[in-house]
């Protein structure tokens, strides 16, 4: 990872357009390309895959994830 990142926001801006893993508190994971996010941590993903217990449950072309769902990590 680049060393010029100084804040979480800068990190997230650098991740836009890259594949990410979004984990919700409910245990559901979303994998997709990060299109954008906002101050509430609402997230827009492309080519989204929904994974539950290691199983692929669903695919969405575009997906909006509401920021309050306890996003644990973005990898």
């Amino acid at each position: 990872m680049q060393s010029q990142e100084r804040s979480p926001t800068e990190f997230l801006n650098n991740v836009i357009g890259r594949p990410v893993l979004v984990k919700l508190n409910s245990g559901v994971d979303y994998r997709g390309i990060l299109s954008c996010l906002d101050g509430y941590m609402n997230i827009a993903l492309e080519q989204t895959e929904e994974w539950v217990n290691g199983q692929l449950k669903n695919k969405y072309g575009d997906a909006f994830i509401r920021g309050n769902n306890g996003i644990k990590s973005i990898l």
């Binding site: 695919k59 072309g61 509401r66």
Partner: peptide, 15 residues
């Protein structure tokens, strides 16, 4: 009510 929403997607390709 918005607080119940987890995800919104255009329904194309939704199984």
């Amino acid at each position: 009510r918005g607080d119940g929403v987890i995800l919104v997607s255009p329904p194309v390709r939704t199984g």
